[in-house]
Design a protein around this nucleic acid. Structure first.
Length: 579
RNA sequence: GCGCCCGUAGCUCAGUUGGACAGAGCAGCGGUUUCCUAAACCGCAGGUCGUGCGUUCGAGUCGCACCGGGCGCACCA
């Protein structure tokens, strides 16, 4: 990496000045006049060299510097050090990339450690909607990033089929079923009105005729749950481009936490156990017949009920605490929770409780809650005709992920030779994923359906994909392969800019992984595509009159192809060969 | 009222360990095609980075206050 090289030269210089222990900060400046890299080292060093103006400090550092990789090193302004690389230095970076090929951008930070990523976790009361879509895609990419970094990743989905909502689901299906049999009963007050409920009822009628007329709610609930879960897996299978049986590794059922089961290693700690521990540590108490969590003692704004007074049932908070205790006990090195903005307050109670258990010695030392990282994402606003679409799951005024993909798919147009059902599916999934990935999880996303459906350049996905197809097209025409060539021919600004951008890739992947921020990568890919388009427009790759340049530029294109394919794989995008 | 997130160009958004005159896409205006796909490229225009204090050599970035928007604040999940 070029930046590491600059840092290394600086470090050597510092050592000779007796300041070797500092890791110099090196950035890529915005303006080309400021060079390829820049360091503010002189300012950082200022407190350690009182009385010396930063400019002089910078000059001292530069005087001791090994300048062989650079065409020029300047001290400018109040004390910035700007580095201008030799073309040969940049060319060498391309060599490195081609050597590493599809290993380029792999990270070592995971080192075979185990990571658990929990996401989506919707109770199966209906199809997945756009509300779940962002979380699903974020989680999927974070899993891919962690795998790339060497983690052994477990994808987990937490759900509950025992609560009130699931009972309502069963009652809703039962009501629709009896309606079909001509024995209508009142529809449950807060039941689910979606058409999918009728479909499930029809399916029951198809398989069981009128045999379920006297049945209780329970079988209806179970039938609906099974149907909906397989539907959910099918949807995620489209979105993740994984077979349905592989979209998640573990479906963790909240009910496992209610009764101790020695057979179940995933739930070695129950709700009751956690409650007892909290009591022993003084973080649980009784009031008004309920059991409360003394969250205020842990710096939280208010105490919360853990066990209800009337029914004796736990609220969702207690099993959540038990669930997280179990996550820690299962021996993961990294635990990632992905939640929507509605959880931003509540997860902190759960973490506070788990921390208290650990600090109180109830959980083994290796179960340090620092291993848990929570990623909160803001909501997606679906816009249709410029207006936000109001959605309610219960009233069935929602747009499902499948509907979203299908709607976009109906407008996709690709090169006729490649315009198949599969490529259209691939492309519409690209659009959905990219729209949701290109923004920071912290910011709200306006998903403009009209825009996503437009098969035009408004759509950044096309821009990125088009760069890839241009490269493929060059290689189709070139007939030759990329051989062992010299890169001395690559010295034009657009060529060097492209290599320098390729050189940034591993650091971008590292940043995205460390910050659990896929949008770093999504933004990078867009920038890389832009630099490639610029190069492509200005310089012809294939030139029979000049085989040396052709070979060097083909190698450059291959480097871009490698990085694009690596980035696409991490983002779960699938580029077409032609558009 | 309390907590978390956001407020950057007409629109949608980057800018994540504070760094040099603030970026991209789209929309607007003007150009580019005997040549690897013009779903592209080039140029122009567009901003008191919500407001005000503060921290410092330096603040879109950190702190405080205020204004505006989103989401929470259940013995629902």
């Amino acid at each position: 990496m070029l930046r590491a090289l600059v840092q290394e030269r600086l470090r050597e210089s510092l050592q000779s000045l007796g300041l070797g222990e500092i890791t110099p900060e090196v950035t890529v400046p915005d303006k080309p006049e400021f060079g390829d890299f820049s360091s503010n080292l002189a300012f950082v060093l200022k407190p350690r060299m009182p009385g010396t103006p930063p400019r002089q400090i910078a000059e001292k550092i530069v005087a001791r510097l090994d300048k062989s990789p650079f065409a020029k090193v300047e001290v400018v302004g109040p004390g910035f050090i700007n580095f201008f690389l030799q073309p040969e230095t940049v060319q060498h970076a391309l060599r490195e990339i081609l050597n590493q090929e599809y290993h380029y951008g792999r990270l070592e930070m995971g080192q075979g450690q185990r990571a658990l990523v929990e996401f989506v976790s919707a109770n199966p009361t209906g199809p997945l909607t756009i509300g779940h879509c962002r979380q699903a895609v974020l989680g999927d990419v974070i899993c891919r990033l962690l795998e790339n970094a060497g983690y052994d990743v477990t994808r987990e989905y937490y759900y509950n089929d025992a609560g009130r909502q699931m009972k309502l689901l069963g009652e809703s299906v039962r009501a629709r079923y009896l309606e079909l049999l001509g024995q209508p009963v009142p529809f449950p007050d807060e039941g689910y009105h979606g058409e999918y409920i009728r479909e499930i009822a029809r399916e029951i009628q198809k398989r069981h005729g009128s045999n379920w007329a006297e049945a209780s709610v329970e079988p209806f609930k179970e039938f609906a749950e099974a149907e909906l879960f397989s539907e959910i897996k099918r949807t995620l299978s489209r979105l993740f481009r994984l077979p349905p049986e592989r979209v998640f590794d573990i479906y963790y059922n909240e009910t496992w936490l209610y009764a101790h089961d020695t057979q179940n290693a995933l739930a070695s700690v129950t709700n009751a156990q956690v409650l007892e521990w909290l009591r022993e540590l003084g973080f649980a108490y009784e009031k008004d017949g309920a059991i409360w969590f003394k969250a205020t003692a842990l710096g939280r704004p208010q105490d919360r009920v853990l066990v209800r007074s009337h029914t004796g049932e736990p609220t969702y908070r207690l099993p959540d605490m038990a669930y997280h205790a179990n996550k820690l006990l299962r021996g993961f090195d990294l635990i990632v929770d992905i939640f929507g903005a509605d959880h931003q307050d509540t997860y902190q109670d759960v973490l506070a409780a788990v921390r208290a258990l650990w600090e109180g010695g109830k959980l083994p030392k290796e179960c340090n809650p620092h291993k848990i990282r929570v990623l909160i994402h803001q909501w997606v606003n679906l816009l249709r005709g410029g207006q936000p679409v109001k959605m309610s799951k219960r009233m069935a005024t929602f747009v499902t992920i499948d509907e979203l993909i299908d709607e976009i798919k109906s407008t996709v147009e690709l090169d006729p030779a490649l315009d198949t059902e599969q490529t259209r599916e691939d492309f519409s999934v690209n659009v959905v994923r990219y729209f949701l990935l290109m923004r920071s999880a912290d910011s709200h996303v306006n998903f403009d359906l009209d825009l996503a459906k437009k098969q035009s350049k408004d759509n950044p996905v096309y821009y990125v994909m088009y760069a890839y197809t241009r490269i493929r097209s060059i290689f189709d025409k070139s007939k030759g392969s990329v051989g062992a060539v010299g890169f001395q021919a690559l010295r034009l600004p657009e060529e060097l800019a492209l290599i320098k951008k390729l050189d940034e890739f591993p650091q971008i992947v590292r940043d995205a992984t460390e910050h659990l921020a896929p949008h770093f990568l999504a933004v990078y890919v867009h920038e890389l595509a832009g630099i490639f388009h610029d190069f492509y427009e200005k310089h012809r790759v294939l030139d029979e009159a000049n085989p040396e340049v052709t070979q060097a530029r083909l190698a450059l294109c291959y480097g871009v192809q490698i990085v694009l394919e690596r980035a696409f794989a991490l983002l779960g995008l699938k580029a077409p060969e032609r558009m």
